[in-house]
């Protein structure tokens, strides 16, 4: 474990907890894309298949349980909670996320580390995580209102992935055989997707104006 990875995990934890707390306290999910949350729940479900078979560390297991629990809770709140679900604008959150799932699944069937169910699911979860934010970014551009919690959520998610890239660089130089091309490329693509959001986020923060994404 290195400082970049710990910071990345804490930032990732903060992003899901910020969102869960927002939805739980103000009983509203305005501005939140259910599609992105469903994709993230799928990412964790396919990524953490080994949670009960491979014990790596207490930290690893606890964090996996938190990520699984929080992502499925957020989906439950938006779909089932009698008050929260009313604030979900489904006619704006129309990104056809199946168009993301299928290509990621096909890609995972072609490019993976080993052709086993676990490895294909693991590669699928990495490809899906790279694009899972798209419905949320599209929704932000459509509704143009970025309330600061949703903006923070996207910002923290981007920061977590950027910190992970530093972690991979650090591990590459400190651990002789640490090479995971699939993880690195998927992580880089994901971070680049956030790059333009970061630009507008910092611009609005610097000029102290409300964050406006170009249509």
């Amino acid at each position: 474990m290195n400082i970049f990875r710990l910071a990345g995990d804490m930032t990732h934890l903060a992003s899901v907890l910020v969102l869960l707390l927002k939805i739980h306290t103000i009983k509203s999910c305005a501005g939140v894309s259910l599609k992105t949350q469903e994709l993230y729940a799928l990412v964790f479900a396919t990524r953490y298949l080994d949670i009960f078979t491979d014990f790596i560390s207490l930290y690893n297991t606890v964090m996996k349980l938190i990520f699984l629990g929080s992502s499925f809770s957020i989906v439950w709140y938006i779909r089932r909670h009698k008050i929260v679900r009313r604030s979900y604008d489904k006619d704006q959150d129309t990104f056809r996320h199946y168009f993301l799932v299928l290509p990621c699944l096909l890609l995972a069937l072609v490019i993976h580390e080993k052709f086993t169910f676990r490895e294909v699911m693991w590669a699928f979860s990495l490809y899906l995580e790279a694009v899972a934010i798209l419905p949320q970014l599209v929704l932000l551009q459509r509704t143009r209102n970025i309330d600061n919690l949703t903006g923070q959520y996207v910002f923290l998610l981007g920061a977590y992935r950027a910190l992970y890239i530093l972690n991979w660089i650090y591990r590459y130089f400190t651990e002789p055989h640490f090479v995971h091309w699939i993880t690195w490329i998927a992580g880089l693509v994901q971070t680049l997707l956030y790059a333009d959001f970061f630009y507008y986020y910092f611009e609005s923060w610097k000029n102290n104006v409300k964050l406006q994404l170009p249509a």
Partner: peptide, 10 residues
Amino acid sequence: IEPTSEKDEL
């Protein structure tokens, strides 16, 4: 250094 098992990242 901890043994870098295959998938030790989240």
